[in-house]
Design a protein around this nucleic acid. Structure first.
Length: 426
RNA sequence: GGAGAGGUGGCUGAGUGGCUGAAAGCGGCACCCUGCUAAGGUGUUAUACUCUUACGGGUAUCGGGGGUUCGAAUCCCCCUCUCUCCGCCA
């Protein structure tokens, strides 16, 4: 959520930037609306505070009068107080409504895109920030898509997943299961080596946490909900990992905070269908290793680059063809100011599959999280949050299977062999 | 799931209707002093909102919400979390 004070100071620049997200004049007016509402809020606040101050003063007076036995005078003041109280209550109600309205409007305003975010409304307009430099692998026409390979080598049983749960819940078995475990271990080890603290968080989160990272109230349709207990299955480890820092005030020397964790991720993906959801391309449950950093505002874009490098190094070690996209305004997540997507080439499907998304949220999340730090000057201000996948398993597995298929089985990349314990899947 | 006890500032811990935004101690910070020196002294030390050029005010907050009252950390109700005992259990 943006801060009204920031909107106030930068309104023209913000409006210009929001046009990249396809905001028309009408939607841009919501920025002006926040300022109007905030002004109303302030004047109500001031007036209400004055009334409360008067009430407090009178109450003290009444106490004194009773003590000195002047009950009659005290009772006279009581009447005055009750008048004040009625009017204060009215003002309080009015202020509550204004605040609710302001909150509602703020929820409709996404993060302000960074200068470098390209114009454009669809994924077609994403900028190829870094392309795969050599030829893409060509496996010929006999190459099998990963769901066929998974079947041939008995790695993943989609049918059993359907039987046990439903579609989109694959059951990994044998070498397929081991490959998952190897990748998880590999990614975690790499993250720890890069200075992230490993954590194993809860997989269910409460409403406050879901709100803190912005899954509520706008994206609740994406999460599985345990209504009876008021809990949500996490759609990404971003939620528990970032909420570690909810209501926290860091010291400047605490930066940077780096945490990583592996969790299953649960997504309803309601309304998805077709070839996009075939095999592992889009599932309701998948494993992901997430990296999260809390950064000083001056450093967050450097941190973003550092995270980019880390993720890139993983793909290089896995020997997968990849490219990096800088998302255009229309494709940018609501809460992000700048996002890079990583895609790997899946050689049998001849498709680029998204395996990671790295974003700088600036203060958009920390404002709701109340994640702050105390600066050198003693002032408390909002910190910046960033996160990225490093990496999401399902699609990595898809690409690994497809790209490494040979007549003699599926080869395991060198870096992964110590983790799988086998060189090839036959 | 049942019974009981409790949630106060960075921490420990006082506080049962008004002078308590909150004693005391510890910790932190600043300054001072110094042949008792891994010591001593003095001051300071929450967050948010708001008014003010500034100095400095005001309001709210003692787990959360509601209520009683002129006035609540203190009384009442609901919720939540923690601890102890019982039950259940990987």
């Amino acid at each position: 959520m943006l801060q009204v004070s920031e909107i106030r100071e930068n309104i023209e620049a913000y409006k210009k930037a929001l046009k990249k997200r396809g905001f028309d004049q009408e939607r841009l007016q919501s920025l002006d609306r926040t300022i109007v509402l905030d002004d109303q809020r302030k004047s109500l606040q001031t007036s209400l505070d004055q009334k409360l101050a008067a009430i407090n003063a009178h109450s003290k007076e009444i106490g004194m009068l009773y003590k000195s036995g002047k009950a009659q005078e005290a009772n006279a003041i009581k009447d005055q107080v009750s008048v004040l109280k009625t009017s204060a209550a009215k003002e309080e109600e009015a202020m509550k409504l204004v605040k609710e309205e302001l909150y509602k409007v703020l929820l409709t305003i996404p993060n302000i895109p960074h200068d470098s975010v390209p114009d454009g409304l669809t994924e077609e307009d994403n900028e190829v920030y870094q392309d795969w430099s050599s030829d893409l692998p060509d496996l010929g026409d006999h190459a099998k898509p990963h769901w066929e390979l998974a079947d041939v080598y008995n790695l993943i049983d989609f049918k059993l997943g359907v039987k046990i749960t439903g579609s989109g819940f694959p059951l990994y078995r044998g070498h397929g299961a081991k490959l998952q475990r190897a990748l998880i271990q590999f990614f975690l080890d790499e993250a720890v080596a890069a200075g992230y603290e490993e954590v194993m968080p809860p997989l269910l989160v409460n409403e406050d946490s879901a709100r803190g990272t912005g899954q509520l109230p706008d994206k609740e349709g994406q999460m599985y909900e345990m209504e009876r207990d008021g809990l949500y299955l996490i759609p990404t480890a971003e939620v528990p990992l970032t909420n570690i820092y909810r209501d926290v005030i860091l010291k400047e020397s605490d930066f940077p905070q780096k945490v990583t964790g592996h969790t299953p991720c649960f997504r309803r993906e309601a309304g998805s269908y077709g070839s996009d959801v075939k095999g592992l391309n889009r599932v309701h449950q998948f494993e992901k290793i997430e990296i999260v950093q809390i950064a000083h505002p001056d450093k967050s874009y450097d941190v973003l680059q550092e995270m980019l490098k880390h993720i890139e190094s993983l793909l290089i070690k896995l020997e997968l063809p990849y490219r990096i996209l800088r998302l255009c305004g229309g494709d940018l997540t609501f809460t992000s100011a700048l996002t890079f997507d990583f895609e790997v080439y899946s050689a049998a499907q001849k498709k680029w599959l998204e395996v990671s998304s790295v974003s700088n949220f600036l203060t958009y999340q920390s404002n709701r999280l109340k994640l702050r730090y105390k600066g050198e000057n003693g002032k408390t201000q909002l910190a910046h949050t960033l996160n990225g996948s490093a990496l999401a398993l399902a699609r990595i597995v898809a690409a690994l299977l497809e790209n490494n298929q040979t007549a003699n089985g599926i080869k395991i990349p060198e870096a992964l062999k110590p983790y799988t314990g086998f060189d090839v899947i036959k």
